[in-house]
Amino acid sequence: MGFWTTFYALSFYTATLILVLGLAYKIYQYAKTPAPLKVPTMPAPLTTGGVVVRVLMEVVLFQSLFRSNKWIWLFAMLFHAALWVVLLRHLRYFIEPVWFWVVLVQPFGKYGSFVMLFGLLGLLVRRLFVERIRYISSPSDYLMLILLLVIGGSGVMVSFVTHTDIVHFKAFMLGVMYFDWQPIPTDSILLVHLTAVILLMIIFPFSKLLHAPGVFFSPSRNQVDNAREKRHVAPWAIKQFESPPPVVD
């Protein structure tokens, strides 16, 4: 086994561990922390079903963002929608035989990459040139976009320019997954792509990318509006104030 094969195989294990454990910890932390008060942004749904619809509208269509700012919404939508299609297309490196619908997604994923890059560039341009957004940006906010541009750009290069041997690469990927390592194709652009992806996986649970799990846990969006009908109390509040419980005469 060559150095690069060992290096990337080990990096993938490490990055996957960090990503999975990191996200699991954050999700556990969000789930475990109580929301002691009813604070949905009103008007809010009156039923759990309604809340599911509300959260899905936020996750899939970015409903609030749409009301808020059409430009950001447009670029965000292009980027995220294309991202999902690209990721679905990627499934073919990890499964054998490739599922039928993943085959269908292939051309969309392939050209979706340009949409993704366009969306990212739009977001970057806004961040650089809209005074208010520049004011609130830290270096990490630019670097995150640049990292994603590097991933997307190198992916496009591999796909459209260098034409890396995908069969060869898939053997490596499956080998990593089933602990039966195979040599990695040492095409430099591909290695740039993989390095950047590994970096993204490691950063994910420590960065603002936590917006992805966060959106499901946001009390202002995921609470049912039923404060009058149903008493909602956090365990810590009961412990602090209501043991013993209040007596009503």
């Binding site: 929301a35 604070v39 208010r132 957004i133 936590l210 966060g214």
Partner: peptide, 23 residues
């Protein structure tokens, strides 16, 4: 941070998209 999920999630989740900046 331990008592209020809102605080924890809000402090983590902001992507600095800027949508709120003129609101």
């Amino acid at each position: 941070l331990k008592k209020y999920r809102s605080l924890r999630v809000y402090l983590d989740a902001c992507v600095k998209c800027g949508a709120c900046t003129d609101k």
